[in-house]
Simulated scan of single mutants.
Amino acid sequence: MEILLEELYKIDLTASHYVQRKLQLDSQSYQINGIAQSGKTELVKAYLLTRKKSSYLYIDADDVRIEVDELNEKLQNFCTSNKIDILVLDNYHPEIKIINVSQLIVCSRRHYELDFLISKTLYPLDYEEFLAFESRYDSTAVSHYLQIGGFAAMHRISTDNRAKYIQEKFRYALSALEFDILLTAARFAGQKLSAFNVYEKLKLKRKISKDMLYRSFETMTTDGYIHQLSKLAHPKATKKIYLCDIVFKHTITIQKNFARIFENMVFLEMFKNETECFYDEGVDFYIPKRSEIILCMPFADERTLFKKLESIEAFIFSNQVQKITCVTMSKEGTISHPMSQVEIIPFAEWALSD
């Protein structure tokens, strides 16, 4: 094990494709959580490359050469004797013993109770981060975002290999059951879908216990691969389901429902901004704190928007909605309404407005 640690200590790290994220690291100790492909490894490597090479040690716990018992036995002495100040344990799991160093950075796909570390979650790129990869800041950027989503690596993958890349990466990262849950969520993104609904669909294809399905569904939600949205004032009602990234919709399914992809994209912007929202019948998103409705209508015109407002008039009145925002692909403007301010705004402008 000492030979392997020496090799890892001497190796030159690279982060040649790294583009700065909103989450940045400093000299404190962190636990960084995030789904596969969210960019955790690139983030920590980019940080280490700003430090003196002899001061850090980067260990990928998924390295098959690592024997955990030997690592636990040797790591503290190795770091002490080499005066290592910064230790990164990527793909960390609890079997690895935490040692005493000046700065510890732990990266993992799920959260562990390590209260002495500052916990941060790294999500796939939001639209503002995505723009750092783009050469043009116009409508083509939104179209490109809809095609490749928020996984930074997708910028380096050719069009013909994108679906294969996503399928391979997430079949490896997830269990067979978890991947099937993700696949089902992708087919029903933006719709009401419960763990029981998923069980009913999957039991037709494979032998499965309800308890196992429920546990895996909860894990997928906790780890951030799928998100759920509650109905306003009805916490026990079936939740709507959304994907952690829109790219799954067209890389692991053959469905081309643009409206659902667009709605998922809008949801993710609010989720990453920690905006509390709910759905209701006919209402895509309602933000109580701002008394605002968000409608996802990529190709709306004034006529279709008027019809939509008529269909949700009772909700607007009963909740005293002050503002209605209709997010579109490119249409913009305002229309008059007796109770609420109504604004039509392109997604690119809306996503960058907060």
Rank of each mutant, 00 (worst) to 15 (best):
A152T: 03
L177V: 05
L174N: 02
M154H: 08
Y165P: 00
H155V: 04
K164R: 12
A176H: 10
K164P: 02
S158C: 02
D180A: 15
G150F: 11
S175N: 04
Y165I: 03
L146W: 10
A152N: 08
A153G: 03
A153I: 07
I148N: 04
N161M: 11
F170M: 04
A173F: 01
D160M: 07
Y145W: 14
M154P: 04
Y172E: 10
Y145R: 13
I157E: 09
K169A: 09
I166Q: 07
K169F: 00
K164C: 00
N161D: 10
E168T: 08
I148Y: 06
A152W: 08
I166C: 06
G149Q: 14
S158D: 10
A152E: 08
Q167P: 01
A163V: 05
A176P: 01
A173E: 01
Y172I: 05
A173S: 12
R156K: 14
L146A: 15
I181V: 11
K169N: 03
R156A: 12
A163C: 06
R171V: 01
I148D: 04
E178V: 02
R156S: 14
D160R: 10
F170D: 02
M154T: 08
Y172V: 04
Y172F: 11
S175E: 00
I148W: 07
S175A: 08
M154Y: 07
F151W: 10
L174T: 00
A176G: 06
L177G: 04
A163K: 15
Y145P: 03
L174I: 00
Q147V: 07
D180T: 01
I148P: 00
L174G: 00
Y145K: 14
I166K: 08
G150Q: 13
I157D: 06
A163Q: 12
D160V: 03
K169G: 00
I148H: 06
L146C: 15
L177F: 05
F170G: 02
M154N: 13
I157Y: 07
E168I: 02
K169H: 03
K169M: 11
Y145H: 14
M154G: 09
D180H: 06
S158M: 06
Q167V: 04
A153R: 14
Y165C: 05
